[in-house]
Structures are given as structure tokens and as C-alpha cells.
Design a protein around this nucleic acid. Structure first.
Lengths: 140, 140
DNA sequence: GAAGATGATCTACATAGGCATATGATTTGT
DNA sequence: ACAAATCATATGCCTATGTAGATCATCTTC
């Protein structure tokens, strides 16, 4: 009684969509778009040396990212300064306020995730996390 | 030395994007769009009683789905017939040709997935499949 | 049988994304 | 010093997607 094989892509897409939809109201409550949150997440992990790098890291068009950065800068959640050693580049850094905002949002998102994973055995949860990191790791 | 927690959504989105990108050339080679493939997949599992149901099942706008169904019908991969018991509804059914096309594409996609999961232990692979099914299952 | 709901379809509109090109400032290679 | 490459930015184009409204046919309810 083998279950028929199902496409990985289909399963991943379904779960991703579910997660994104669950994040939407949280982000909206904090006045952040998805891209803005993604950028803050990336910056919380470390300052970006150029906007191009930032765009690559978050997987977004560098051109389109400009508006996102503009909005976050206006909101005081990040700063953009020319790199002294290469004045073409702009170093993008999260502010204290940005860090607080990100932590608040991420806290709620993690709580949502916990609720979603509620009926998974603890061992399964750990395995899932390990496998996702492994599959999402950069190309070897 | 705990790794910092990472957002589930981020990890799922990254892997999903990777899978979709790997599927793109396969689908293109067989002359199918992503939505067309998704529809065929759904129909391969069973006939859809109405186009609305079909749209819900695949998570697509019923309005937009019409064009997809049109194309698949023109290509002879599915048939669309009025339901005798409710002549408003159109029963959508995959054809033999559609089934063959779907099987061919899915075969290549599964091979691609196998390659991607190559460095996972067999036990891990089974666990991943089980967890994805569990998380993707309809709301309890 | 009339009124309202439902299914398929079409059209239009707004937003978002990917992609290409252009420009000005600056750095790097020769 | 000069040419080519790089970074940030602005703009435009094309496609995909989400949504709403309108129409026609057909059911369902009362």
C-alpha cells in the first residue's frame, strides 16, 4: 500500500504559500511589506557592503530593491552610507530601531510557526530544521 | 553552540524557488507552462467535477484558469464536457494523451528531484516526505 | 413561476516582478 | 591619462497575478 509519489515542488510550494499567508497579517500589523521584512532579516544578520550584494542575498532585483531600501531608510529602520574605500558603493546597515522592529516581528512569526508545527514530534521538528538547512544551503 | 533560529518561511521559500527553477527547463522542453502542468497533475489524480473545484484545488484564480484549460484542451490533453446533472458545470477530464504527457514530464521532474536529494540519507528522505505530507495536509 | 444563487466566461484595472537600457559617479586596468 | 568596468539610480516594457464587475445559462428556493 505505497502512497503514490508526490512532487516535491508541489508540496514545498503548498507549505510555502501557507506560511506566507500566515505571515501577511503579522507584517501588516507592523507596517512592513514582505520584502522589507526580508531585507531587515538579512541586515539583522550583518551589514551589507553594497546594495547589489544585498539584492543578491535576498534574491530580489537590485533595481526594485532601491524603493524598498528608500522606504526603510525613511522609516529610520536602516541607514545608507557611502563606503569610504569605494564611494560608488553604499553600505546598508540596520539601525537600533530597525533591530527592535525586526525582533518584534520575528518573534510573532516564530510563535506562528510554533503553532503550525504544534503536532510534530520534537525529534521530527529538529530533523525538519536540519533537512531544510541542508537543502537550502548554497550550491556545493 | 546553538545555530540561530531561522524563519521557516525563508527556508521553505528558498527551496521552493530552487525547485521551480529546476522544473522550468523541463516544462519548457515539453511545451507546458507551470500552471498547465499543475492542472494536469491534479487531473491525473482524478476528474474535476467543475472548473471552480479545479481552480480551488490547484490554488489558482478561476478566471485565469480558463485560459490554461483552453490551451490544454486545444492541445488535446484534456476534455471539457457539460455535466448532464448540472449543465452549468463543465466536467474536466484528462485524455490519454494528456496522461502520457504528464507521465513523461513528471518522470523527468522526479529524476531531477532525486538528483537534488542525492546526498540525503534514505531515512532522511523518507522522513522529509512524511513531514511534507503532514504539513501540507488540509486543515484539521 | 419568479427571485436569487451558482458556474463559466469576458473585460478591465491595479499591482508586482523580471528584464533591458541609460546615466552619472567612481574605481580599476593598462 | 584614458578606456573599461562597476555601483546606484531612473525609466520603460512585458508578463503574471489579484480583483471586481458584467453577462449568460442554468439550478434552487420559495
Amino acid at each position: 500500500m505505497n502512497e503514490p509519489r508526490r512532487d516535491l515542488g508541489e508540496m514545498f510550494a503548498r507549505i510555502t504559500q501557507r506560511l506566507v499567508q500566515a505571515e501577511r497579517p503579522i507584517l501588516e500589523r507592523h507596517g512592513l511589506s514582505m520584502w522589507e521584512y526580508v531585507v531587515l532579516s538579512r541586515l539583522a544578520a550583518g551589514t551589507a557592503p553594497t546594495q547589489r550584494t544585498l539584492a543578491q542575498d535576498v534574491g530580489h532585483d537590485p533595481t526594485r530593491l532601491i524603493g524598498v531600501i528608500d522606504a526603510l531608510e525613511t522609516a529610520g529602520l536602516l541607514t545608507r552610507h557611502p563606503d569610504p574605500s569605494d564611494r560608488r558603493a553604499r553600505v546598508v546597515e540596520i539601525t537600533e530601531q530597525g533591530r527592535r522592529r525586526h525582533a518584534a516581528v520575528q518573534g510573532e512569526i516564530h510563535a506562528m510557526e510554533d503553532a503550525l508545527l504544534d503536532d510534530l514530534a520534537p525529534a521530527d521538528r529538529a530533523t525538519l530544521d536540519r533537512l531544510l538547512r541542508q537543502l537550502g544551503a548554497d550550491r556545493r
